[in-house]
């Protein structure tokens, strides 16, 4: 019996979600007294993983794995799982992890629960709580299979240091020939992505037009935050679709979510509700968003935001 995690890295560093995964899986491994194994692709800084509780790393390196492809990555994870009597695989909620999880589930004949929000409630029959109805509710889910896969919701467990002596093992890649080819990856450089951000600053129709977005961008860069927007803002082309958050857009699970000139429609709230702390700036004291907020400022964005930026800069320095 052992637990397997897939630790993702970017630009030569493990992602924060990988460390959260390690921390979460360590807590389970301690409870069950089983080994925790991490798989990493084309990445060598393994001491970091040891600091978060991983005991063994299987590293798979191959130039052809440079671009993520769900099927190839899933096949390689499956072969490590089968070779090590793994009965629990834990994945993050990154776009890539959610892409490969169902493929891995079929290849291992495993059960799969996504959006898991905490440690399992029971291990006799693996029982987990997961969010559903786009964060409007939770369900308790029982997975009674020889192998199960859990997808951990971002920021739902946190990161705990826990030093272990780490054993590194090299494994050659399984490469099946496919007709599937990654042609191009366009990344907006230098920007924090909504998925990875600790803080997200979001603007709504209250900002009046795209020419005012420097307010959102300045506040975001002061905080090292990602920028986001409401649905009508992206529908009108003020901002790219990739910034649209909510029930039909991206989910947000940041530590701090700042909503400026967003009314707080139920579909918007659904997608951002799992953010820990919500700050709302809106000129209308009756805006529904205040009911879902932790902190609220009733005021004109064009006055409040510049002052907030200025004072934050002073606070940071």
């Amino acid at each position: 019996m052992s637990i397997l995690i897939y630790t993702e890295s970017e630009n030569g560093m493990f992602k924060k979600s990988a460390l959260e995964l390690a921390s979460y899986a360590r807590a389970i491994a301690d409870k069950l007294r089983v080994e925790l194994i991490a798989v990493s692709f084309n990445h060598k800084d393994h001491q970091t993983l040891g600091a978060y509780g991983v005991e063994r790393v299987v590293q798979i390196s191959d130039p052809s794995l440079e671009n993520f492809t769900a099927l190839t990555y899933a096949e390689n994870l499956a072969s490590v799982a089968l070779a090590n009597q793994v009965n629990l695989v834990v994945l993050s909620s990154s776009a890539n992890a959610k892409y490969l999880a169902p493929l891995l589930a079929v290849s291992l004949s495993a059960g799969y629960a996504s959006n898991v929000i905490g440690l399992p409630e029971s291990f006799d029959y693996l029982t987990v709580k997961r969010s559903c109805f786009t964060n409007k509710a939770y369900n308790t889910c029982v997975l009674d299979n020889d192998i199960n896969i859990l997808g951990l919701s971002t920021n739902s467990f946190g990161i705990n240091e826990n030093h272990k002596e780490i054993l590194v093992e090299d494994k050659s890649a399984n490469l099946t020939k496919t007709n599937f080819e990654v042609e191009r990856i366009e990344k907006s450089s230098g920007q924090v992505s909504i998925a990875d951000a600790d803080i997200v600053v979001s603007g709504g129709r209250g900002l009046k037009g795209p020419e005012n977005w420097h307010l959102i961008e300045d506040l975001a860069s002061t905080l090292g935050a990602a920028t986001a927007c409401s649905k009508p803002v992206s529908d009108m082309g003020w901002r790219p679709h990739s910034e649209h958050v909510g029930q039909t857009g991206k989910p947000v699970a940041s530590n701090l979510y700042i909503a400026i000139g967003v009314s707080g429609a139920i579909q918007h709230l659904a997608g951002i509700n799992s953010s820990k702390v919500k700050l709302v700036i809106n000129s209308d004291p009756e805006a529904p968003f205040f009911k879902a907020a932790d902190y609220g400022v009733v005021g004109d964005a064009f006055e409040v935001v510049p002052e907030l930026i200025e004072k934050l800069k002073a606070f940071k320095s």
């Binding site: 776009a95 599937f180 080819e181 990654v182 042609e183 366009e186 907006s188 920007q191 998925a195 990875d196």
Partner: peptide
Amino acid sequence: EIDGGIETVSC
């Protein structure tokens, strides 16, 4: 859509 960008594939 990937985290922070767009990936294009052919198959």
